[in-house]
Nucleic acid binder design. Structure first.
Lengths: 183, 183
DNA sequence: TGTATTTATTAACAATTGTTATTGCCGGCC
DNA sequence: GGCCGGCAATAACAATTGTTAATAAATACA
């Protein structure tokens, strides 16, 4: 579960020895890995494909975050605290994933020096990501938000179906199409 | 600076002995107690009146929080970490305030048992307040947000001028007036 | 009390976004 | 290759909100 450049080097070499705790699976697109309201028992690492975290709001889905190759992904709060997840975790493309159980994960937490600190950083980054997302919703128009996404994270727009982008921006697919084609 | 029922009792009796560290001032409405971009050197406790925390977004002001009697108020992050404040702190009504300097405040933090924990709780509540506010912006329409405010915090609506409520809800005063009068 | 200032309402119009439905395109899959 | 399903674009219309301006009401305070 590498990532986060600074901390990465400190334990990336040790990583091999835990590989037997992960199971590789492949799943089709639109597979729900975790359902809203359920307690997360597994965490995933994306080898191939992409996924999204979203929640249902009166029948409309609101996407919070996208995940791509070489990223760990779970409903962090639910997995760590074993509480009901507020989010759905769903694949967008067919995916190859490394799966680890909560139990094995806890083993690594205890066994690998520095891993817990790394997790703290992941959590912190996630909070920062949310704050930024929320603030952009308050301060900017959908159009501005789209343009910012296009500038800062073009790979998301290249790869993710447009209606998920719309759900991420808080608008309808129709409205996003209009913004893109300026009419 | 009492508040927060649970922790309150643990040090509310000790509080008197620090009263000499506070200075009472009275200020008119619309007094800026802290300007966006400045470092907070003072914290306030409201004896009489009310205030709001807001920031400027391209000329429009966005209100984040309202404060009333028996509440401590400051740009918490700026006061604690001595960083530039992201917010303006401004009185809404003429106010009577107890003022304490950063230095004297730090003295109390060190001197009073349990005070630091209390501050942690204040900070935690503030984060929770923000999360709630942000989520309501994403999930609900301005109309729904107004109705929730009316139900949950009627005292705010009773007391605060309507255009500040509008700024808190993220809409124009005109739009809020329309919502209130259903047309 | 009378005047000035602030605040709220209303109207008219523009801009943005949502809703619903249709069409066409593309890719996966049998 | 051909069919089906998912996706994007577009149109027409409705609903919501913003903008600007005028007016009315409430409030402050001299």
């Amino acid at each position: 579960m590498p990532s986060s450049n600074k901390i990465k080097e400190t334990f990336t070499t040790d990583w091999e020895k835990y590989s037997h705790l992960f199971k590789e699976i492949t799943v089709p697109a639109k597979t729900i890995l975790l359902k809203e309201g359920e307690v997360s028992k597994k965490a995933y690492y994306i080898t191939k494909g992409c996924a999204r975290l979203w929640f249902n709001n009166n029948g409309k889905d609101i996407t919070f975050q996208f995940f791509f190759e070489r990223e760990g992904v779970s409903s962090v709060e639910s997995f760590r605290l074993q509480e009901k997840s507020l989010f759905n975790l769903e694949t967008i493309e067919p995916c190859t994933l490394l799966v680890i159980t909560k139990k094995n994960f806890e083993f690594i937490v205890k066994d690998m020096p520095g891993f817990n600190e790394y997790l703290q950083e992941v959590l912190y980054k996630r909070m920062a990501h949310y704050s930024k997302l929320f603030l952009s919703r308050i301060k900017n128009t959908p159009k501005e938000r789209y343009e910012e996404l296009l500038k800062e994270y073009p790979h998301i727009i290249r790869r993710v179906p447009q209606h998920y982008i719309a759900s991420y921006l808080g608008i309808t697919p129709v409205s996003l199409s209009r913004i893109r084609n300026k009419r």
